[in-house]
Every structure is written in C-alpha cells, then in structure tokens.
C-alpha cells in the first residue's frame, strides 16, 4: 500500500488541529474499511491519516435518562449497535439496517459515522437514523453545530461537512408512545451487498392502536440522497393502518421517488418495489408497535 503517516489523536480538538496543520494532505480515518480500499485503488492518496478511533467516547448506543434521547456515536462500530439490547428492543429499524451491512468482519471495525459521511445513496445506516428524526452533531475548530440528519446529505458522495469538520454523533429524540419501525434492504442477497433499494417505515399509533399519529417513510437508492416520502407520510396520518392504506402510501412513495436505472436494478422495478416494501415494512412496524403495547409498559 502507498506510504502514509498514521496519526493517533486522543481528543477531538487534537484531531482538528492535526488536520488544520496538514490540510489537503490529511484524511480522517475511523474503521478504515472504505478509506483503505480507496487508498489501495489509488482513489485517495493522503500523506497523513488521522485516526478517530482513539478519541475517548462511548462505544455503544446509550440513552440519556433525563431527556430520553438516544446517542449514537459516530465512532461506534456497526457491530456494537447491532448487539445493543437497547437498539434491538426499542429501535428495531436501526437493528434491521446495521445487521446486514457488509459482513461480521466488516461490522466489527466499520463505524456508523463512516457509513454516513460517505453519503452514498445506498447508505443503509442513514435511512433508519433519518426515520428516527436523528440530528447530526458536527464538531470543528469553531465549536459544535447540529442539523437534521436528513439535510446532512447533499448529493451522491457529498455531505454537509466542511474541511476538517468531524461528525461526532447522531442524537435521536424520544419516540412517541406506541411506535413501531422496520427497515429492509432489497437486493440479491442479504450480506455483502449494497442495496438495490432500502426502505424504512416508522409508525406511531393513536391509543386505539390503529390510527396513524405520525409516519416516517424513508428511502435509500430511490433518489440521489436518502430521502423522506413526505406525501406518502402525510397520506397515512389520521388513517387506519391496514394493508390497503399502506399499499396506497407505497404507491405515492413510488411516485415521489427519483429512481434510475443502474447496474443493480432498473428504475421501473425499483419504483414497483418501493410500493411493495413500504407496505411490507408498514405492516411489520404495525406488528411491532402492537407487540410493544401488549408488553404493557413503554420504557422509552
């Protein structure tokens, strides 16, 4: 592999000043499963790699008990999110997504922040975090700024990150009661593949456990960036959650999609599958919301 100098800062401030002093010749690295491949392929040629792996931070998602917010640190590995009982129990949409990213070997080192800053249209990690109304926290020499994660993605491979800035975490606000969620990556196989389509649905129900109080329909690979099918979401609110209404929401979401032909699938098929999968994930989200309600206490 091409030679570089590996720098290992212990704090965010140290990382930023190391980057500032070296400018274009430096590149941040966390898990390295994308950066090292790009260096090997000659697509990146940094003289300095600044590791974000040794910056002291939490290594698994945790809940702020006072605010009810979930903190997902950018330097957490996919595996630590996948194995988190908190995520499995209360944020199943996130668990659905991270468990099929790459392979066990990749998930053991690759970080969720790396998945997000790559900003590929297929970013599996982004869809559930957007559906959960996640906010991105971004750190730089000027301090911290936050933004809706949805707005963080600007185009294929482009995110709203200035030179030297570091995505530090995604914070998820408390969920409404009676909420269920599900994500599915559609492709030829589950593991080791970028999705042809990624569909995440989150539904919050009224007390009757049937009427939709709030909906999030978030799609990957259906547009240049991850996006929310706002018309389809609006259609569901106030309506009964059943197969018929979910199918209609799916049809609307398909119309909202800006799908295109690519090596992994053609546009018309993708659009059809948006309809199929929005309905399927909607039914799964409903089932999960009901199960959670039957369990009695809602802890989150």
């Amino acid at each position: 592999m091409r030679k570089f100098t590996y720098l290992v800062p212990k704090t965010l401030d140290e990382a930023i000043s190391l980057h500032e002093a070296r400018g274009e010749r430096a590149k941040y690295i966390a898990g390295g499963t994308d950066v090292l491949v790009k260096i090997k392929e000659g697509k990146l040629a940094p003289d300095y790699l600044i590791s974000l792996k040794h910056i002291l931070s939490q290594d698994r998602p945790f809940l702020n008990n006072e605010t009810g917010e979930l903190y997902v640190g950018a330097f957490m590995t996919h595996r630590s999110i996948e194995k988190s009982p908190l995520v499995q129990l209360h944020y199943p949409i996130l668990h659905d997504a991270v468990k099929n990213i790459g392979s066990v070997q990749i998930r053991n080192v690759a970080t969720i922040g790396g998945n997000l800053v790559n900003a590929v249209p297929s970013a599996d990690g982004a869809i559930p975090l957007i559906a959960l109304d996640g906010k991105a926290h971004i750190y730089s020499a000027k301090g911290e700024r936050t933004m809706e994660l949805l707005r963080f993605f600007l185009g294929p491979g482009q995110c709203d990150l200035g030179r030297g800035e570091i995505l530090t975490e995604v914070v998820i606000p408390p969920q409404r009661p009676r909420t269920g969620s599900a994500y599915m990556k559609h492709g030829r196989r589950e593991a080791m593949e970028l999705p042809m389509l990624g569909v995440g649905v989150l539904l919050s129900l009224e007390e009757d456990l049937n009427t939709c109080a709030q909906a999030r329909i978030c799609l990957g690979v259906a547009a240049p960036t991850p996006f929310r099918a706002l018309m389809a979401e609006k259609f569901l609110v106030g309506k009964a959650i059943n197969a018929e209404n979910l199918a209609e929401a799916g049809r609307i979401a398909g119309d909202e999609s800006r799908v295109r032909d690519s090596i992994r699938g053609v546009a018309w098929y993708r659009r059809e599958m948006v309809g199929v999968l929005v309905k399927r994930m909607g039914l799964k989200a409903l089932e999960r919301a009901e199960n959670k309600a039957e369990g009695g206490r809602l802890t989150v």
Binding site: T33, V37, E41, Q105, N108, V109
Partner: peptide
Amino acid sequence: SGECGACTVIVDGEAVNSCLF
C-alpha cells in the same frame, strides 16, 4: 478489499479482515 474473507483473523475475540486493518 474486504470482499472475500480469506484474510480473516481474530483480534481480541472478534473476526476482522486483516487486509483492511
């Protein structure tokens, strides 16, 4: 490039691709 797993080793109990580590 992390696609084939032939280089898998175990670091602190976890399987990793040694070609990307």
